[in-house]
């Protein structure tokens, strides 16, 4: 069996630089999950049909399964765990929980990433803009209603907290 060459890879994941060796075929999803322990990303389809593996790549939400790891070399990756933690939850994480936007939870990591990508650019999106922004993220449990509500509420909460800090 032919062994693929490996290449050095340097990634900034959630603010921390990580180094590893990868083969050209390996996707960003594979490297994050299997080599760097970021199992919060999920593989639902492996080819960009479901959005469960979404991450922010230099600030933009993308499918990690549709990005080669080497294409992310030197770039910033933010996963769900980089958005907030139990000590310091992000408003999206709070609103997803409180609004009942999480059922099985398998789409949540990607869903929250897409929502973060949206709110970073547009903190007060309309419902239509929210629906469009998450239209690459499938959810089989919720019917999307509570997810849309959660994103809307998070946007409002972010605005409020920004207002307070000013």
């Amino acid at each position: 069996m032919k062994v693929s060459k490996t290449y050095p890879l340097k990634l900034n994941v959630n603010g921390e630089w990580k180094k590893t060796e990868v083969t050209p075929r390996e996707t960003l999803l594979h490297v994050l999950r299997e080599r760097l322990g970021h199992t919060e990303l999920k593989e639902g389809c492996g080819k960009g049909d479901c959005g469960a593996c979404a991450v922010l790549l230099n600030g933009k939400p993308v499918n990690a399964c549709l990005t080669l790891a080497l294409q992310a070399d030197g770039k910033n990756v933010v996963t769900l765990k980089g958005i907030g933690t139990p000590d310091k939850p992000h408003p999206l994480q709070e609103s997803f929980v409180k609004k009942g936007a999480i059922q099985c939870g398998f789409c949540s990591a990607g869903m929250i990433i897409s929502a973060k990508g949206l709110l970073d650019e547009n903190p007060k999106p309309s419902r239509e803009e929210i629906r469009k922004a998450i239209s690459g993220n499938l959810c089989r449990c919720t019917g999307y209603k509570k997810i849309v509500e959660a994103i809307e509420e998070a946007g409002q909460n972010i605005k409020k907290s920004v207002g307070r800090s000013q």
């Binding site: 919060e40 765990k81 994480q93 009942g100 999480i102 949540s108 990591a109």
Partner: peptide
Amino acid sequence: KPIPRHDAWEKAFGLTCYAAD
């Protein structure tokens, strides 16, 4: 009451360890 599920927080933080994790 509309109470957030106890498992939802873990899921929101990406801490839940599913079968493939």
